[in-house]
């Protein structure tokens, strides 16, 4: 006797698979944005499920800012090898030539050049007409109103005031040449769903999510991990070994760690259930300067 009712995680899973298949069937050249984080890991797992026994019928794209944690890059390459993925890595070489980096140019310019611009370069170069992202509506206010098929103009702009209504599970996939959509299969998942699903499905994730003794310095109330020698230390600043983990992963100079001893998935889920802060509180770029997330997204940030 099989259960006649799907659990909420199985419903979310089925919805995501449905979205993956719709995009693959309706667009000429989709791509999956792969950021190496936990949401990307879930996204990748769902993509493999959606098309099984076929391989994933589109490439993965990692926009490498060159400032990701080293462990993220080695994890990425290992996963690509293990799953035999068609992985594209794009770096904004123009930005590299100019030596753009978060320590020298600030987080806003760095993110703009090495992430947002770089992403647009890659999308234009490969002429992708649909790009999957792992954004969730519970992450941040501007993401709550994002559609599952989110329309982008030829210049990759998003117009939050003029979005296509989305009813039932029917998605409008019509775009003109040069226009595209961003597709978000994880829209209706919460952070807790993600962790429970990783646990349930035994999905590999970057070890940085688990607590371990790591060298950190405290800056502006955030614990920044000293991941390589490019990090300039201020006078009197001495890296300390602390048991920390990360709730989200990005560029290491812009990503705050939290002090924690949660070294297993059940421990992480346990900590989450009592946490009162958003996972993105560790993200410097969300707060930096004038840029609200909504503005960044209108300009093409994922």
């Amino acid at each position: 006797m099989i259960e006649k009712h799907l659990t909420h995680l199985r419903q979310l899973e089925a919805e995501s698979i449905h979205i993956f298949r719709e995009v693959a069937a309706e667009f000429e050249k989709p791509v999956m944005l792969y950021s190496i984080g936990k949401d990307s890991s879930v996204l990748l797992h769902l993509a493999r499920k959606a098309f099984h026994p076929s391989p994933i019928p589109f490439p993965l794209l990692h926009v490498d800012t060159t400032w990701k944690f080293r462990e993220m890059i080695s994890f990425r390459d290992q996963i690509a090898k293990d799953y035999n993925l068609d992985l594209l890595v794009h770096i904004n070489e123009e930005g590299v030539k100019q030596g753009i980096g978060p320590f020298t140019h600030g987080s806003a310019l760095h993110t703009d050049v090495m992430k947002t611009e770089s992403l647009k370069q890659a999308l234009n170069h490969y002429k992708f007409d649909a790009a999957f992202g792992g954004a969730r509506r519970d992450e941040e206010a501007s993401r709550a109103k994002e559609r599952i098929f989110s329309f982008r103009t030829e210049t990759h702009r998003w117009d939050p005031k003029n979005q296509r209504p989305e009813l039932w599970n029917i998605y409008n996939a019509r775009v003109r040449k040069g226009e595209s959509i961003r597709a978000f299969p994880l829209s209706n998942w919460t952070e807790l769903d993600i962790w429970q699903y990783i646990y349930l499905e035994n999905i590999p994730i970057v070890p940085l999510y688990f607590a371990k003794e790591r060298p950190v310095v405290e800056r502006d109330g955030m614990l920044i991990m000293v991941d390589d020698e490019r990090m300039p230390l201020n006078e009197g600043e001495v890296p300390q070994m602390k048991s920390v983990r990360f709730r989200t992963l990005g560029c290491y100079p812009l990503t705050g760690a939290i002090e924690s001893t949660a070294a297993t998935l059940p421990e992480i889920i346990q900590e989450m259930l009592v946490a009162k802060t958003s996972e993105r509180q560790g993200r410097l770029i969300d707060k930096d300067q004038s840029g609200s997330m909504e503005r960044k997204k209108q300009e093409g940030y994922f």
Partner: peptide, 11 residues
């Protein structure tokens, strides 16, 4: 699977 029910994504 032996059986699939409403809501499941299958092939």
């Amino acid at each position: 699977l032996d059986e699939a029910i409403a809501g499941q994504a299958v092939t």
